[in-house]
Design a binder for these strands. Sequence first.
DNA 1: ACCTGAACACCGTTCAAGT
DNA 2: ACCTGAACACCGTTCAAGT
Lengths: 208, 208
Amino acid sequence: MQLHKRDVVEAATAILDDYGIADLTMRRLARELDVTPGALYWHFANKQQLLGAVADRILQPALKEPPSPTWRESISGACERLRDALLSHTDGAELVSASFAAGQSQAATEFLAQLADAATEAGVDAEHADLAARTVVYYVLGFTVDEQSRLQWDAAGALPSDQSVLSTDLGAAWPATSDSSNRFAFGLRLLIDGIAAHRASRQGQSVG
Amino acid sequence: MQLHKRDVVEAATAILDDYGIADLTMRRLARELDVTPGALYWHFANKQQLLGAVADRILQPALKEPPSPTWRESISGACERLRDALLSHTDGAELVSASFAAGQSQAATEFLAQLADAATEAGVDAEHADLAARTVVYYVLGFTVDEQSRLQWDAAGALPSDQSVLSTDLGAAWPATSDSSNRFAFGLRLLIDGIAAHRASRQGQSVG
DNA sequence: ACCTGAACACCGTTCAAGT
DNA sequence: ACCTGAACACCGTTCAAGT
């Protein structure tokens, strides 16, 4: 039967989840779809574009924005959804980070625009709102790439019996997800406070 | 004559500057050094490690820290030196960003420690100083990767005669380096203000 | 319109064997 | 100790030709 873009992206996501970004090659993907590598180039101009489509798929859940009462919650909510989306696919942060840098993810652009809106709400002038949004995205991507590589490294080295590197002392379980989330929230607060400070130093508006 | 690590890193940097990161392959590098690819693996365990050494070389100028009167100037000074170092090599931001994420650059770790010291000076507790430093580095790397890709794209498309995409209107020259630097400074101020706000919300210290 | 076959021009890495 | 020769197991991309 006919090959459609959606099938290709779905199969690519499956390879990503099961084997990671290093195994997500055009040839491997073609094999999985029972076609010749050349077939993929009928649907996608090149690998970068295909990865961009995978990035868009990963970012879908991060784009739903429930209305927030304050701009602070708009930003931190969006960032938490972004991090969650990245963490729910093997090497998700790395893939999206690369696609974002290459300008191949339409969803990333959309996400950026949402953040810029929140920054505008916060009182940042239009000229700088996009920049504030980018700064926030750089943080989330950088943090999550780091976090995910550690998580996956630990998961790979984890033996069936709980023999972790840091669990030589009894009882004390390995610093869990909650700690990582706290660390994430710290950096986020830094940025949000920075945006608030900028707003305040420009013109006095109602406190968000 | 004998091949030394320093020769290899120097030749690698030359390829980077002249042809970019895509052409910085082990085989190409070996050819340039008049050796067999296998020879490189006597001196470096793998390509990542070699790229880490190149990153260290690029970061060297960013590590000199002149004493600053305030922690704010320590941070912004370090960040400007980092950006300058990255921009002075083709694809420098991309290479250092990758090496940093892979944990292969010793210089990047050192740079991080310097920033963490400044954050501590600012009144951030030890537990969070490293995190604040990372947040700043994520910003500088993210911003500069973006900036450099645009710069290089423009430079590649620039015809001998000043036929730029945006210069269809007369007189108005293309937004120059100064604008980019202003944008860089904006995001940096955001982060520094965020750090200051965090310090203030914790305990009242002398204003930096 | 959509895909195959086959090629082009490469990669990173390993390792016995040489000096 | 340091490097070569040669191989292993791959890559992304193109494009005439088929259906």
